[in-house]
């Protein structure tokens, strides 16, 4: 008779997960599989922020609707009535500017939220392990919900002005997705930089503010002198906003702008994840 030993490997009914902890060097893998395993936590984080935001105050919902509405009114007054800027196509200026604000506000809010999300979650990072990517990603999800709330506003305004979209509108979600890719990428860069350099926090809103005027939110690309137009077209948000308008109003969109958005957005996202993952090991020690 042979004694039963534990070492023959067949004893374990199911393979036991083994966690190996050792110092990591250089660049880390993207870690998307692990993120997937923790997808419930990602939803829970987003759900928590939404719940708190929309429950705490009636103002929460009013703010999401009111902020773009007020900005739209001011922009219409200043740029349209005073400076006589025109929308592209036959779209009323207010609808035109709101469509731009919708996408820009989403981009800007999620960059700002993702950028500051780690500082706000430092109490979690120092106490429990989970894929750190979940924190800025949850911030972006929350802003996607805000985006859909303000999309209702845009729809209402379009109906009011009888601006009816063509079949291209089915591509609008694709545009939003592209915006989300870019915003997440920039947000991840900001979040990780923010841990290493604390004054990034102060820089983010400032740069975003400038960014809005460097992007055709309140004007169309046509008003830029041809000599400088390529500068605006290099900005990936130009492509996203112009493409968004193309799906909503059937306006033309420059191929260069689309190309720039299609190349830059995924690039920023992938490098953003890599940089974030590289900095990740320092989060608990620095925060």
């Amino acid at each position: 008779m042979r004694p039963v030993t534990e070492s023959n490997g067949s004893v374990a009914a199911e393979p036991m997960p083994v966690l190996v902890i050792r110092p990591s060097r250089g660049w880390r893998a993207l870690g998307l599989r692990e993120l997937w395993a923790y997808r419930e936590l990602l939803w829970i984080f987003a759900w928590r922020d939404l719940k708190v935001r929309y429950r705490q105050t009636f103002l929460g919902a009013v703010w999401v609707m009111g902020q773009p509405l007020i900005t739209m009114a001011i922009f219409t007054l200043i740029f349209n009535r005073v400076a006589h800027l025109r929308a592209s196509g036959n779209v009323p200026y207010s609808v035109f500017v709101l469509s731009g604000l919708l996408l820009w506000n989403f981009f800007s809010a999620s960059v700002a939220h993702a950028g500051n999300s780690l500082i706000g979650a430092s109490y979690l990072i120092s106490k429990v392990y989970f894929p750190r990517l979940a924190i800025p990603l949850a911030a972006t999800i929350v802003d996607l919900v805000d985006l859909s709330v303000s999309a209702v506003l845009l729809a209402a305004l379009m109906i009011w002005y009888r601006v009816l979209p063509g079949p291209e509108i089915v591509l609008f979600p694709v545009v939003v997705l592209a915006g989300a890719v870019l915003a997440t990428g920039v947000g991840l860069w900001c979040a990780a930089l923010n841990v290493e350099y604390r004054d990034v926090r102060v820089l983010i809103p400032f740069v975003l503010q400038l960014g809005m005027f460097a992007t055709p939110v309140a004007y169309s690309v046509d008003v830029i002198p041809a000599k400088y137009r390529f500068l605006v077209l290099l900005n990936p948000m130009t492509g996203i906003i112009e493409a968004g308008r193309a799906t909503l109003f059937g306006t033309p969109v420059a191929m260069e702008a689309l190309l720039s958005a299609a190349i830059v957005s995924p690039l920023v996202l992938i490098t953003g994840i890599y940089y974030y993952r590289r900095m990740e090991r320092l989060f608990a020690d620095l925060l």
């Binding site: 036991m16 997960p17 083994v18 966690l19 190996v20 902890i21 050792r22 110092p23 990591s24 990072i125 120092s126 106490k127 429990v128 392990y129 090991r281 608990a284 020690d285």
Partner: peptide, 16 residues
């Protein structure tokens, strides 16, 4: 061991 912070050197294996 909780993976909150990384070690500087060495290794730990956790089974389970």
């Amino acid at each position: 061991l909780s993976r909150i912070t990384e070690p500087t050197e060495g290794e730990a294996r956790l089974y389970g």
